[in-house]
Simulated scan of single mutants.
Amino acid sequence: MADQPVLRAYVSLGSNCESAAAMLEEARAALAALPHMLLGAVSPVYRTEPQEYADQPWFLNQVVELFPAEVWQPCSLVDALLELEVRLGRVRSADPALRYGPRVIDADLLVFGQVRSTDPHCIVPHPRLTARAFALRPLLDVAPRLVVDGLPVSQWLERLDCRVEGDRIFQ
């Protein structure tokens, strides 16, 4: 019997609070502690320009690779990510203008193996992944051969009006 392919999921982490680096570390530890989940590769941390809502501090962003067991599905992982955000102190503003505002932690499911989901609660691949350099650049670090919606991650990144200078991403 041939080995089953290993399921890989990729999660983007971000924070722009005063203790952003510590928040990313806590989020990684929380992901590693999920039952039936192994933490894989972790990208470098990038400093990234805020998107949509510019009047806020720059973010620290990174992508982590996860190896979920068969008990996990995209929506159950999204639920776990939302719980992780609440545990780490994230409070979502009721003001739509602040949707992309400051946050203590953000954890987004980018890709869940080859699974596609149109469930409004857990759209996979992430609906804005291919437009976000702060997710694509670190995703490229941990999954250089990953294909999303028919194109390699590197080609999606090349299509964006962005630049990377060391650990800084401008978009």
Rank of each mutant, 00 (worst) to 15 (best):
V42E: 15
L7T: 07
A97G: 10
S154Q: 13
A143P: 00
S76C: 10
H126V: 02
C162N: 09
Q73N: 08
S117W: 00
L7R: 14
R168W: 05
P102C: 02
L136F: 08
E25C: 15
L77F: 00
Q155Y: 05
L160I: 09
P57H: 14
R103V: 04
E158C: 00
L7C: 11
L38E: 15
V6M: 08
P74C: 01
Q51R: 07
E52F: 09
E52W: 15
L136K: 04
A41T: 15
P96S: 08
H36A: 14
P125S: 08
I123H: 13
W156C: 01
P127I: 03
A41D: 13
D149L: 00
R28H: 00
A54G: 03
R8A: 05
W72L: 04
A27S: 11
A9C: 10
C122I: 09
Q56G: 14
T48G: 04
E18F: 04
V153R: 15
C162Y: 15
L38K: 15
V164S: 10
Q171Y: 11
T118I: 13
V45K: 12
R90W: 12
Q114W: 09
R168F: 13
P138W: 00
E85C: 04
Q62D: 05
L81T: 01
L146F: 05
A20V: 00
P57Y: 05
G113Q: 03
E158N: 00
A41C: 12
V91G: 03
P35Q: 03
L39Y: 00
D161C: 10
P127C: 03
L140G: 05
D149P: 02
C162R: 11
V86E: 08
P44H: 12
F112V: 05
Q56W: 13
L139W: 02
A21G: 13
V124Y: 15
Q51L: 02
V78Q: 13
D119G: 08
S154C: 04
E26R: 15
C75L: 02
H121P: 01
H126T: 02
D167R: 14
V115M: 09
A131F: 06
C162T: 10
A27L: 10
V115G: 13
Q51V: 08
P96Y: 09
G89V: 02
H126W: 03
Q62L: 12
V148P: 04
A2W: 07
G166Q: 07
D161L: 12
A131D: 12
L98Q: 15
A9E: 05
P5G: 10
R128M: 12
V45A: 14
P96R: 12
L77N: 04
V11F: 01
L151E: 07
P50L: 06
C17T: 10
V147H: 14
Y10H: 14
V42M: 07
L140I: 02
V78N: 05
V78K: 02
V164R: 02
R92W: 09
L82K: 14
